[in-house]
């Protein structure tokens, strides 16, 4: 793990010519490191995907929905599963650094704190998007919902919703990494904050899955608006988050 951080530092050092750390090389280095670490074991992706799948199955037992009912409750169910999967997945993002004591090394590296957090955010975005891509077809099959003709809209909703989950998620993952009972604290903090994302994404998905499909312009606007606000606040906060 130490040599890995070392290589990240070397990469960044070589790409930084003057003393001021630039954003993009650092961001890319962190993102590449996260993806490389994850794809060595794929433990996070596998665990989260199986967990989300379990949630979907539990729902089918507790509601036993007909095809008509699953069209009505399905979108909410899907986004609850994504939200749970997201909070579960976001937790180790900084825990890994914590247990290996590599966060100090990352801070010492000539990378802007913003780059560290944005790199992690981007990696979390990718992981959650992969989980969703795996889960949506399974959901469509098991709940008898046809998604084939609304794929572009569904992809857009998923991307916007995922962004809205991972931006606050990465911030609070960073801030709760040292907490006692962080496994409880992170969902407790994050889930209420994600209420607007849940509402808008559910509403948009419901419109797309209705028969005939509708274009959810209002819900998409709200989703995009929430994303923009979260990103703006995050951008201004990032610099002060990793200070000691």
């Amino acid at each position: 793990m130490a040599s890995q951080t070392q290589s990240v530092r070397e990469q960044t050092l070589s790409s930084v010519s003057d003393s001021a750390p630039r954003l993009w090389p650092g961001l890319w280095a962190i993102f590449a490191k996260e993806v490389r670490t994850e794809f060595r074991t794929r433990e996070l992706l596998v665990t989260t995907a199986v967990f989300a799948l379990t949630v979907v199955f539990m729902f089918s037992f507790s509601f036993d929905p007909t095809s008509e009912e699953s069209r009505r409750i399905g979108p909410g169910l899907l986004w609850i599963a994504f939200l749970f999967a997201g909070t579960l997945m976001l937790e180790p993002a900084f825990l890994r650094e914590q247990t290996n004591d590599t966060l100090a090394a990352l801070r010492l590296a000539p990378i802007a704190p913003t780059a560290i957090l944005l790199g992690k955010t981007l990696a979390n975005f990718l992981f959650l998007a992969i989980t969703e891509a795996l889960l949506v077809p399974v959901f469509a099959v098991f709940y008898n919902v046809s998604v084939a003709n609304v794929i572009p809209g569904l992809v857009l909703v998923c991307l916007l919703g995922t962004l809205g989950i991972v931006v606050p998620g990465t911030i609070f993952s960073a801030l709760t990494a040292q907490a006692r009972m962080r496994e409880l604290l992170l969902p407790l903090l994050l889930l209420p904050i994600l209420t607007p994302i849940l509402i808008a994404a559910t509403e948009a998905t419901a419109a797309l899955l209705s028969d005939p499909p509708e274009w959810p312009s209002m819900a998409l606007k709200l989703l995009a608006g929430a994303d923009i606000i979260f990103l703006t606040v995050a951008y201004f906060l990032f610099d002060s988050l990793l200070e000691e």
């Binding site: 606050p168 911030i171 609070f172 801030l175 709760t176 040292q178 907490a179 006692r180 009972m181 962080r182 409880l184 604290l185 903090l189 209420p192 904050i193 209420t195 607007p196 509402i199 808008a200 709200l222 608006g225 929430a226 606000i229 979260f230 606040v233 906060l237 002060s240 988050l241 200070e243 000691e244």
Partner: peptide, 29 residues
Amino acid sequence: LVEDRNRHGVLRAVYGLFAFINVPIVWFS
């Protein structure tokens, strides 16, 4: 739940900010 006083001050400040900007979004949504 967070032991390091210095850290939970930052966490609280960030959470307070997010909670407050969330209020109008939830309201409209």
